[in-house]
């Protein structure tokens, strides 16, 4: 038995394919660089940009938008957190607080 006849009839709409997911980056009015604000679905880059405007700048949050296909984002491996992010911890000389200056001076 089995076969298509036994498919439950509620699957009338195919959800197999969502529109692709995009990551959205917005540069605010006073922002220095684009910041990741979230994601959305869109069929293509043009609609992704329009959707990003509608979704993430409703309250005048931004002046510039980037959208990137989520599949194009390469992320660091969480298990590599040690090797990637620990080494700088012994390079305290990169931070301003490493240096002693006379307290009454503005530097």
């Amino acid at each position: 038995m089995g076969g298509p006849a036994e498919q439950p009839d509620f699957r009338s709409v195919s959800h197999a394919e969502d529109w692709p997911l995009w990551e959205v980056f917005i540069r605010g009015r006073r922002g220095l660089s684009h910041q990741h604000v979230g994601s959305l679905h869109a069929p293509d880059p043009e609609l992704a940009l329009q959707n990003a405007r509608d979704l993430y700048t409703r309250r005048g949050e931004g002046v510039s938008i980037w959208v990137v296909r989520s599949t194009e984002v390469h992320a660091s491996d969480p298990d590599d957190q040690g090797p990637l992010f620990d080494p700088p911890s012994d390079k305290a000389y990169r931070h301003p607080t490493f240096y002693t200056v006379p307290e009454d001076l503005q530097l």
Partner: peptide, 8 residues
Amino acid sequence: PELEEEMA
């Protein structure tokens, strides 16, 4: 037809 279009 889709939530993004709901916004638009």
